[in-house]
Design a protein around this nucleic acid. Structure first.
Lengths: 178, 178
DNA sequence: TACTGATAGTCAGCATACTGATCAATCTCA
DNA sequence: TGAGATTGATCAGTATGCTGACTATCAGTA
């Protein structure tokens, strides 16, 4: 199926297949999967560097969780996972570390004894406020090769591709239900 | 369904800063770092599903390594890492698993006793050939929400952003020297 | 040649992510 | 109501990725 001329590196020779034949390997730069990995790799590195420069020890994942917990009081872990598209088994460890750092409290829910209620602490609130400029800065830096318009377009296309693929990962994004 | 007005920065009020102030949290969908994570998450899931459906047990990272080893006979690990932008400490484990599966041979280099020479096996060659359609298919599926033109544009913008950020991660892409 | 610095590879340790399993609590519906 | 299904959380196991440390080796030079 030679559709996808997008994926084909037909610079000159006009190959027939995405991965060309026997003796050639497709250029990584034409594989969206590889580009996704590289961009994510850089994004994480930039985030960690900016946040550390600001004097904090917080990963991108921990930041997203913390911000979402602050915005949604008494959130349970499964709902949190849905809001930021984390696997529920990953959340356990992330929350462990946020609790350990004193940024979040985890307590039993009164409504559902299976569930845990998450609440941001004052310290968590303070950290979130103070780390924000570094996070903003990181978002800018990871797009520094693009014009403002290109950055917008990249985000639009990513959103669109993600929306179409949302259900393909184990941890799809989910709305809050009522 | 209340949706997520919580996470939405209401466009109407005209936010001042990227992350707005105290009581609001930026919509994840406006954070390139978050979009990068999501897209990569989906890309990996799609890759694994397609490859498994085809009857193979190979991760995206293992596939990239295997293809690059095939294309570059007697490659050493550091050069391999540079070609696919992996950290050198990650390569060790990846190669371990490829060797374990009988797809790659690792032997001492005659030229430099510190280095290891990597060589694809016949089995590796066979696997690579047979898994290729699944890999192609995965690349298509992860862009299924986009038109051909949009997919092309997404890859162009990712390449551009990555090029500008290449040196920001511990594992930048490197050319083969000599 | 002996010293110095750089390099290839590995390892320990940590933090995502995922699969698949388990346990307890809750829900559904006959 | 009560059996079966579902759900919230956790755990064990595996695979990236990273930091930082370490060994062995190499290359250049005083």
């Amino acid at each position: 199926m030679l559709t996808i001329s997008i994926l084909v590196n037909d610079r000159a020779s006009g190959p027939v297949s995405l991965l060309e034949e026997e003796n050639s390997v497709k250029d990584n730069n034409d594989m969206p999967g590889h580009l996704a990995r590289r961009f994510q790799q850089i994004a994480v590195a930039v985030f960690l560097a900016e946040v550390e420069d600001a004097g904090f020890d917080l990963t991108p994942v921990q930041y997203a969780a913390l911000a979402t917990i602050k915005a949604n009081p008494r959130l349970d872990q499964v709902t949190l996972a849905g809001l930021i598209a984390f696997d529920r088994t990953t959340i356990t460890g992330v929350i462990d570390r946020l609790v350990q750092k004193g940024l979040v409290e985890r307590r039993a829910s009164s409504r559902d004894r299976r569930a845990r209620e998450l609440e941001i602490t004052d310290e968590g609130r303070r950290t979130l406020r103070k780390v924000t400029p570094a996070v903003e800065s990181a978002q800018r830096i990871m797009l520094r090769g693009l014009s403002a318009k290109e950055g917008e377009e990249l985000m639009r296309l990513l959103r669109k591709a993600i929306a179409a693929g949302n259900d393909l990962s184990r941890a799809p994004l989910r709305d809050m239900q009522a």
